[in-house]
Write a protein that binds this DNA or RNA. Sequence first.
RNA 1: GGGCCCAUAGCUCAACUGGCAGAGCAUCGGACUCUUAAUCCGCAGGUUCCAGGUUCGAUUCCUGGUGGGCUCACCA
Length: 578
Amino acid sequence: MTPVMGKKAAKGTFWADAMADEILQHVDRHPRLQQIVADQGMLVYDEKTPSGIIHVGSSRGWILHDVIARALRGKGAPAHFVLSSDDMDPYDKPSAGLPREEWDQHLGKPFRHIPSPVEGYESFGDCYFRQCTDLFDQYAIEAGLETTGGLYEDGSFDAAIQTALDQTAAIQGIYTELYGDTPASHRLPFAPLCEQCGRIGTTRALEWDGARGLIRYECRSDIQSYKDPVTYERTYIPGCGHEGWRSPFGGGGKFPWKVEWAAKWITKGVIAEWAGKDHFSKGGSRTASCKFSVDIFDYPPPYPSSGYRTGNGYEFLNVGGRKMSTSKGAGVSFAEVTEVLSPSMMRFLMVRSEPNKVIDFDPNRTPDIVNLYNEHDRTERVAHGIVTKEPDALVSKLDRVHFYTYPERGELAGREAPARVKFPLAAIVGQSVETAEEATATLRAMGHLPEGRGHAETALRVGEARSWLGAYADDSKLRIALNDAVPADLEIDDASRAVFAGMAADLSAHVDGTEVLTEQDFKGRIFAHICDAGIEQRPFFGVAYEALLGRPNGPQLSTFLMSLGARALPLLNEAAGT
RNA sequence: GGGCCCAUAGCUCAACUGGCAGAGCAUCGGACUCUUAAUCCGCAGGUUCCAGGUUCGAUUCCUGGUGGGCUCACCA
């Protein structure tokens, strides 16, 4: 391939396109990387430890890597995104939702060797990893999947293990240089897997015999500790006391994290890999890994790093102003969010925001949701060339946002934009009818959908609105709930009762088919009744909403009643006093 | 204490690699026999966090502050 020789990316360039340019330059600077790309393509890499239910914040990284890989492919580079499950990592503290008496026995073991808490998965690690990756299609995330444990077991890491252990002194020196004289300054950079008890978090490597390729270790009870979630006491994971020699190769153990990260880069030939900004803090794991990569493995650390310079990680996705945390069991899981919010919307949210901007998203805040849908729809319209009120710079940006939000749509030229119904309307109609079919029919009758189009996307959106209302919108104004009965303390004068009676009669006739009314007809009847009764419109509607919903306002009455159909009749009759 | 990121209209964000600060939503006003988080039209909304510096010109670049977020043993 011929990398596009990049100038510095223009400031107005969409973030993913600009990053792709920089990655191509990164490759250009290193002949070694050019060779790797020629041999195996351009690897965009990410990894995740499956230590429990994975929260929604992690999806920002997956989407980011997917978008970057697509941007690179868009420039002709043979890029692909691979996500690895760090399932060789040990289960290092009790997991929030699992019974202690059953699961504490597995503390210290690699996630890939612990049974799955949920049926149908190969292991603990497989379970939590795949609960997410099985949803990737819905998010249009195109990723190759692998497990880090698998890489240990198939020998991929063997060369790096040999290198690291042979250079133990140099690695210890780097730890000392970065962190001072800490325990890591004196340890072998490897955690053997105990042959007797299968734990990896409780072992200490004692001696490396490079000639025989064996490592001496013991399995102890003073290595790995956690803060007990109930008693808050520091508790040590018990090792089995085994001591012996074993081969570190072929799955015989794992690197400590910071060394492992660097080992992966050279082993896999990683060209680009981000992580959350927490890893990129000065003195953090990326700092150490870059050092190991350059000094120990002699490999150029992947973009956005360059040599010892780490570059910057991406910002967090906060939900309701809080950083999500897997281990604290707080927050919203990725799988859970997917059931309630549209994957397209989540993807849109993350594509439109530059990686260095915090995203604070709260599904409990109705305006957040309404706004997100509005912005999404506008982006879609602009991308289809429908609205051109926006300034040019914004149009070209929204164009790219749309492209990366819906990569599967491809070229839009000459294609009609999906017919979108605004989210609040979808929510109201969705609550007053039973099925998506009815909702679509109602919306079509109301004139919100063009003839013959918009059925599928509208049914989808009504479904999204309903799921969201079911999960998050308890106190949202968009929630409507029919009264069981007309509130006892509601005063209804005789004139108003007559209007209710008239509406009930009209609606009833419409429902049993003796009279076919369009929405316009029905609307006209309502006003005729009000006029006949000789009362003011405004106060009457207030009374009507109190009678039906227990609120002073609500959706347009004619639409609302028609979409309710027979379900509205008991209340209308009661209000009419009949 | 050190480091990184962020700060533009009430909210969410733009501003084409320094050139008259713009959109969407909300608010407000008007229209539609019609109350709405429906539709259409319109008004208003800004000392671009502060103080300096570079420049003919700074939201943009530099320095120093302020506020917010994240992070800096081990583990990941």
